[in-house]
Amino acid sequence: MGLLFADGGTVQLRKQAGPFEITLFSTPSPLRVGRADLSVMVQRVSDHSPVLDANVKLHLRRRGGDNIIEVFAPARHENATNKLLYAANVNLISAGDWLAEVEVIEGGATADVAGQVMVLPASPPAVAYWPYFALVPLAIALFVFNRWLRRRREYLRPRR
């Protein structure tokens, strides 16, 4: 179970390529096995203005033993909360170093940047959702405390 439309987050790489400056963000932070939100900001090198009409593709690759795991995902504004960014929701199925490539095409210009992205093993559900599990013991503790306060109040109340 993962996050949708939660772009921004940690800067994974920021590089200049051709006429563009490309920044790759990731959520959650740190990245873990499972669903992740990757978002890309494309800017012009000349004035740092955001490029909003580019075609952005993400390609993630990892060598695991004899196999190569690859994930291709188009990044779009529609997937992003911050509409200056291009976002894609991807499923990262194994932990380790992934090679992340971002390809940007705008008009006649094309640019590619790549960098290593570290993905940690998935958190156990108990860790990932601990606040929701903690509600039960917390509520029970509050209930026990509530009962103790009531008994104490009845005990302290002067008897007629």
Partner: peptide
Amino acid sequence: TYSAIYAGG
């Protein structure tokens, strides 16, 4: 952080 992600404008 804000200098690293200078977003134009």
